[in-house]
Amino acid sequence: MEELPARSEGPVSAPGEPGAAPAPAAVPPPGDAALEARGLTKRYRGGQLAVDRLDLRVPRGSVFGFLGPNGSGKTTTIRMAMGLIEPTSGTVEVLGEPMPRGVRRVLPRVGALIEGPALYGFLSGRDNLVRFDAADPTADPRTRAARVGAALDRVGLVAAAGKKARAYSLGMKQRLGLAAALLRPRELLVLDEPTNGLDPQGMREIRTLVRELAADGTTVFLSSHLLDEIEQVCTHAAVMAQGRLLVQGTVAELAGRAASARGRLAVTTPDPADAVRILKEHGVTDLVAAVDRVTGELPGRDAPDLADLNAALVGAGVRVRAFGRERVSLEDAFVALTGEGFDVAG
């Protein structure tokens, strides 16, 4: 785990900002992917094509956001990667080994939360973890109690560890599922909708946990339909729709590739009419004025220096409260890529 290459991308905290462009120096060698799918296809017996020739590469050390509407094939992809489902064609390698052949060697190094937690309601939280730990043939039974205790501690469930799991709230179940994924140090963590059912405080804690794990060198593969969540923690992302991969890359690249990548100019001012006039003179188009705010599209070529533009406004007597480009969100990028609302099923 310690020998993993340094994370190849910019800081997680600022993926959407200009400074977060990929650092070309630390690009891992080809093949050194935590998860790699080539032509991965799954057709269920009913004939339904769930995943269609998927090529996906999750670099080691990345926090990889896996996006897509419900029914887009995300979970089927994850199940194939975890050896639960056999691909119809194509391959998927996890930590360098093809699945499902490599399950015994690979999966002890992988923690997974798939389609929500599943627990034995009649067992206590602690006994649930003991059971999942006992299922791993490479786990030393002598240190089981310590592992279970540490995992409970990590997700903040120590106080509720003795309670029967059926009495747990959804958030507690989610935490216990995460604890099972964290029973041992993992090289890859696959988290399918990890913040489902959590309150805002719980979601924050999960994000902090993901950042901590990533800082330790764990590759995190995070599926979510919450764009905000992906944008906050991920370095890379891929978008699926109707079983196909639409796009993959760093979060900064994705935001940059969207049509509206250059954010609109936004001026907050009590003098919108004057502001519109001055901006128009400087070539800003598509101006929209509100009570105290003006936005517009900067010209693609020969764009004026923003500082000059601001000076021109102030020079003309426009009182400027705020001035700058609007930040492009991943959601803007997503809508630009797919041309559809996010939660529309494929």
Binding site: L84, I114, A118, G121, A135
Partner: peptide, 18 residues
């Protein structure tokens, strides 16, 4: 039915062993 099977399998329990 309870979903615990998938977590046993990714532990990984080994299908024959289970």
């Amino acid at each position: 039915a309870s979903g615990t099977l998938r977590y046993l399998l990714v532990a990984p329990v080994g299908r024959t062993r289970l």
